[in-house]
Simulated assay, not measured.
Amino acid sequence: MAKVYKVDETFDHTLFIGASCAFGVFDGVHRGHRFLIDQAKRTAAESGGKSIALTFDIDPDERFHADRLKKLMTNEQRVKALADTGVDCVVVLPFTPAFSAQSPMAFMDATFGGCAPYAMHVGTDFRFGAKAAGTVSELHEWGDSRGTRICSHDLESFDGRPITATRIRLLLGDCKVAAAIELLGHPYTFEGVVQQGRGQGNDMGFATANLQLPAMMQVLGEAVYAAYVTVDGVRYKSAMSVGVAPTFADATATCEAHILDFDGKIYGDTIKVEPVEFLRPMIKFDSVDELIATVKGNIEWVRENL
Rank of each mutant, 00 (worst) to 15 (best):
H121T: 13
P94T: 09
V92C: 04
A119H: 05
L155A: 09
V92A: 03
V90K: 01
D144F: 12
M73E: 06
F107C: 13
A132Q: 14
V91K: 05
R68N: 09
V92G: 07
A116E: 08
E76K: 14
D88N: 05
A106K: 04
H140N: 14
A119I: 01
T85V: 08
A130W: 14
R149K: 01
M108S: 08
A98I: 01
P117R: 11
S103T: 15
R127V: 08
F95Y: 15
R146A: 02
D154S: 10
S137A: 13
D125Q: 03
S137P: 02
K131E: 15
R68T: 03
R149S: 02
K71M: 13
E138I: 04
P94D: 12
G123R: 01
R63E: 11
P104T: 05
A110R: 07
E138K: 14
T135F: 12
G113R: 14
A81W: 02
G123W: 08
A116G: 03
T74N: 02
L139Q: 05
R161F: 01
D88K: 01
K71P: 00
G113V: 10
P97W: 05
R78I: 09
W142V: 14
A132T: 13
T164A: 12
A132S: 15
P162R: 13
T135V: 09
G134T: 11
T166F: 03
C151M: 11
R146W: 00
M105C: 00
D144T: 15
G113N: 09
M108L: 14
Y118Q: 12
K71F: 01
